[in-house]
């Protein structure tokens, strides 16, 4: 099990993956938006998306868990 964490503080602009999706390492899970910049948040491992911890529009801090991959 691995956690996908936010690499910067910002709001969740788009969720690209959904619970139950099969994803590969490097696939984007979410796109964060902060200070006029959009940053994709990729998964560091392949697997199934067990849980998405945030919703679109949520504010996350750097290091917050966005999703759990199994």
């Amino acid at each position: 099990m691995t956690e996908v964490k936010a690499s910067m503080a910002g709001s969740v602009w788009k969720l690209v993956a959904a619970q139950g999706d099969q994803i590969n390492e490097g696939d984007d899970v979410a796109i964060l938006e902060s200070m006029k910049m959009e940053i994709p948040i990729p998964s560091e491992s392949s697997g199934t998306v067990k849980e998405i911890k945030v919703e679109e529009g949520d504010f996350v801090n750097e290091g917050d868990v966005i999703a759990i991959i199994e």
């Binding site: 910067m8 503080a9 200070m35 910049m37 940053i39 750097e62």
Partner: peptide, 13 residues
């Protein structure tokens, strides 16, 4: 800039 000097990612707070 309020940003990470290595990645240039924004750093609000």
């Amino acid at each position: 800039y309020a940003e990470d000097p290595n990645t240039f990612y924004p750093s609000p707070g």
